[in-house]
Design a protein around this nucleic acid. Structure first.
Lengths: 171, 171
DNA sequence: ACGTGTCTTGCGGATTTCGCAGTTCTGGGG
DNA sequence: CCCCAGAACTGCGAAATCCGCAAGACACGT
């Protein structure tokens, strides 16, 4: 049942079964809208409507809802290493006890851009963006390792970003 | 009035010294523009101009140039796990010999969204987005591990994305 | 059948985007 | 020192887009 490009799932936007993590399930049309905006976040609503078979106003409302629900965000993304001389790293973390409070504490740190729970030899992976080496050292050694429950960390300092895309929809 | 947004670096946009990796160095005004668009990728040029002290047309030109140069992209970003039932993982890779050809081969794979060279116990970190477990297994075992030069890989399957922002500019 | 909630459509009016011409600023020769 | 070329910025009118609103369509539960 994986046939059509856009029609493999229900076409009814009212199809709002909640998935297990609380985010609403998306119908094929919303998926197509997201796909359009993954190519160009500023594409006009009318153009999107033509592409997905909806009126301009309908697209506008669905985009607004997707934004409000937090399902998607339309933003400028850059390579932080390019934009100023900063230090960036991925940090793998192992935790004892409950993951949630640790993850929440990390999420609250402004230097932490990305937090994900994983299966494997790390419990959490977080991406850190810092001004310089001192700042990075401070965040990792003083702030992250100081969190209760953190058993160990391993850092991977970024040398060069080779690829960064958001086009999973378009293939 | 809050003009004079950021003045720590050169205010001359012609300040185009190339940094070592080939990307142009950005002046304070372009940085401020990017910061605006990190908050809302669809913010109108006139509003940005007011915030950074430039005319609407000037902002438009600079944004266009930043996009053309590949310094920034304006796109919709989502949590792939939310948008359809997919499998996602971070893969740490160690390489023997030159990193570049391996990194380039990974960059060419559509399932690979993110490729970064790192210092630490992995040489490369790549993020993979797949349809399902079979697809993920195929990409990691058949495609990535098959690349010449790849010595070993370690996978971290995503369980839950907790945070994903692009607001480094705003702090 | 009826009402309810949601999605959709179709419009003006306000806003934004776009293209262009003219001006300013900077750096490099002559 | 002057002048020129290139790049960036401004201002403005026309076209396109965005936005809010009211009305129609549709599925669903009572």
């Amino acid at each position: 049942m994986h046939s059509e490009v856009v029609a493999s799932r229900s076409a009814d936007p009212r199809d709002s079964r909640e998935s297990r993590n609380g985010s609403p399930q998306l119908d094929a049309v919303s998926l197509a809208i997201i796909e359009q905006l993954q190519q160009d976040g500023r594409r006009p609503y009318a153009a999107i409507g033509k592409a997905v078979g909806l009126s301009e106003a309908a697209v506008r409302q669905r985009v607004q809802k997707l934004l409000d629900q937090g399902v998607m965000q339309i933003v400028a993304v850059t390579d932080p290493l390019t934009v100023g001389f900063r230090r960036q790293a991925m940090v793998g973390i192992t935790v004892e006890g409950d993951l949630e409070p640790v993850a929440d504490a990390l999420t609250a740190m402004p230097e932490v851009e990305y937090v994900v729970m994983t299966a494997g030899s790390f419990d959490l992976l977080v991406e850190v963006v810092c001004e310089d080496d001192d700042h990075l050292l401070d965040v990792i050694n003083k702030r992250i390792r100081a969190l209760p429950g953190v058993r160990s960390t391993e850092s991977f300092v970024y040398l060069k970003l080779k690829k960064q895309t958001y086009m999973w929809g378009t293939r």
